[in-house]
């Protein structure tokens, strides 16, 4: 038993480590396709972590969530985005970003350190198995917010939001197992509608304005200089 638990802990550590790596990727990659791939990797890590926690903590609800998330996050959402967002948007290779890659990585590193300090302010994780999830999830959340702020393109901004949500859920699995199934099911469902609505919004913007570089949208501003 102790052996299998140690194995689960190290496997969960591996999943969390890959999760963090893909968060860094989200913040730094310059290709639209790469951005989506990093999101898929991150979601798979989330699902694996939920599975391991479900096994280790004997929490059947986490297993159910893992199955649901495994379908929605790495499969349905990317397919949905591919279908709603015009192909031309996905072919872009050099996506604009306010800061360059080295500074982005340094900031992501700083945010990770911050997350390690702040994770003590969250409720303690259930068992030592899950404790790695707290700082990594929080770091994922922070890096997601950072990605959202510096990206100037529609789809990478949306993926930044998904990164925030993934981070929040990675923390959430560690502290809040045993949520009623109704609520657990609401989360992936919510993500699905967000992907659909924003995908359609991106398509409308592309058709109407001709670009999805939302960072350049500045026609709505106040007073002076207008």
């Amino acid at each position: 038993m102790a052996n299998s638990n140690a194995l689960l802990t190290s496997l969960n550590g591996l999943a969390a480590g890959l999760f963090l790596m893909s968060s860094f990727g989200l913040a730094a990659t310059r290709q639209m396709q790469g951005c989506l791939r990093f999101y898929i990797t991150q979601s798979i890590c989330l699902v694996v972590s939920a599975l391991l926690l479900g096994l280790g903590l004997h929490a059947p609800d986490l297993l159910a969530v893992a199955v649901l998330d495994a379908v929605v996050k790495p499969i349905v959402i990317p397919v949905l985005l591919r279908r709603t967002v015009p192909e031309a948007v996905f072919r872009r290779r050099e996506i604009a970003q306010v800061l360059n890659i080295p500074s982005s990585l340094l900031i992501a590193l700083a945010l990770t350190l911050l997350a390690y300090f702040l994770s003590g302010y969250l409720p303690p994780a259930t068992g030592s198995l899950a404790s790695i999830n707290l700082p990594v999830g929080l770091a994922g959340l922070f890096i997601g917010v950072y990605t959202l702020t510096v990206r100037r393109e529609a789809v990478p901004q949306l993926i930044g939001i998904f990164g925030i949500e993934n981070g929040a859920l990675l923390c959430g699995f560690a502290i809040a197992s045993g949520l009623p199934l109704v609520i657990e099911m609401a989360f992936p469902f919510d993500m699905l509608i967000i992907a659909l609505v924003i995908g359609i919004l991106t398509r409308m913007t592309h058709e109407r304005v001709g670009t999805t570089e939302v960072g350049g949208f500045t026609s709505l501003r106040e007073g002076i200089g207008k």
């Binding site: 969250l122 929080l138 959340l141 997601g144 917010v145 959202l148 529609a154 901004q157 949306l158 930044g160 939001i161 925030i164 949500e165 981070g167 929040a168 859920l169 923390c171 959430g172 989360f187 967000i194 609505v197 924003i198 919004l201 913007t205 939302v214 949208f217 709505l220």
Partner: peptide
């Protein structure tokens, strides 16, 4: 609509935690 959805959905994800 874009600014509205991005900022408020980000807020929602933070509140989730």
């Amino acid at each position: 609509a874009w600014k509205y959805s991005v900022l408020t959905i980000m807020g929602g994800a933070i509140a989730l935690l």
